[in-house]
Design a binder for these strands. Structure first.
Lengths: 211, 211
DNA sequence: TAGTTAATGCAACAGTGTGTTGCGTTTATC
DNA sequence: GATAAACGCAACACACTGTTGCATTAACTA
């Protein structure tokens, strides 16, 4: 009788119309997040944009945050990283440029806001899952660098990426300052200086200890 | 007639009862943010906690975010940094431990949430102001380190602090992972390795290029 | 292909938070 | 002490959330 999904967490008729509804809901959520951020992404607005009923959304998701998570995880799963280049420094710069572009897009603040909101409420499950997905996507970059001998086999990938991406998030959202080419280049230099093998680091024109 | 403050931005009778109302509002906002984060910090709840009228809040602040900014800026202004030690690495570690404690407190997610929310809506004025205030508070630490010869005179203080604090924010809120003693120590080592003068860096037992 | 029922559409409802306004009262300032 | 700034009070309109009962459609399966 009750159409709730919470019991199993999965729909028992995932095909056809249901799949179409899911697709439209994801599309509507992402569009609304891009257009007006989380404040614009209300259940009512999502339902209208997706041309479905509000009650359908409430029967599918416990609250709007679960719906947003669903859409963002699907979006992340479909996302692809930049093509690999010839050197780790080059690849890392590409990844950070892509990150900058994402965070500067209207979807950027929404991504961060969702992570913060969910951490404050329901723990860190979503951030961990989202971050884990991102690390998986970065695996080819790390493996290529290790294959070239630029990074040691046992490099702490998460620590490296955190040291690279953390300052970008911080500078953009916490410090409220722009992230430009030069800043990204300085991050790449620092990371390589700290993590890459001596032969790679030696080639860097890093004005070390002077930043 | 209309009691609005938005025109000048300042109250024309800031003393006595008005000052008491301001004090109670700030106290109520911080308490509510600590107890239940931004979701708990509604205009209604603030008014009840501060034992004032809702309309008074609406006449003072354009919206609840302005009220929250007011309370957080006052809180930041009254905040003090840890006492200075004998070495820059020591001081930086103290600051990062304090940051970790703040971010792990119930007020932590609220601070980030406010920064994100405001950046998405009204630009980056508040994050810049808040960050600027924090940098001012860190000035003694930098000047002491420069005085000891540990940091060069022209060190980019904002870049240094961003490289130190950014990964902590990222690891805690974006990656959803805990920040422990060891991680802070590794950050301090990395920062000193990158920014401190060679004589200081030489003393560090940083497992460089191995993380 | 037909039957079962999961999934959705529809409509009404209660509850809560936001933001505004008019008017009377208190009190800070000169 | 006079003036009006600031506040208290009360009522209002509006938007979003979340729920529920019943009708309708259509996805699965036997």
């Amino acid at each position: 009788m009750v159409n709730q999904v919470s019991a199993t967490g999965k729909l028992r008729r995932p095909g056809g119309r249901t799949a179409e509804v899911t697709r439209r809901v994801h599309k509507a959520i992402l569009e609304l997040l891009i257009e007006g951020g989380v404040p614009a992404c209300t259940i009512k607005a999502v339902a209208e944009r997706a041309e479905i009923e509000r009650s359908t959304l409430y029967r599918r998701f416990p609250d709007k945050w679960e719906a947003i998570i669903d859409a963002l995880m699907a979006h992340a799963a479909a996302d692809v990283m930049p093509d690999l280049g010839k050197a780790f420094a080059e690849d890392l710069a590409s990844v950070l440029h892509k990150l900058k572009a994402t965070l500067e897009s209207p979807l950027g603040p929404a991504l961060v806001e969702v992570a913060i909101e969910l951490r404050a409420n329901d723990g860190a499950d979503y951030p961990r899952a989202y971050f884990g997905r991102r690390m998986e996507q970065l695996a080819p970059m790390f493996e290529a660098a290790i294959g070239r001998g630029e990074l040691p086999n046992h490099v702490d990938r998460e620590a490296l990426f955190t040291a690279a991406a953390g300052p970008i998030y911080f500078r953009m959202f916490i410090a409220g300052r722009p992230v430009d080419e030069e800043y990204i280049a300085s991050i790449v230099s620092s990371i390589c200086w700290l993590y890459c093998s001596p032969s790679v680091a030696a080639k860097l024109s890093l004005p070390a200890r002077i930043a």
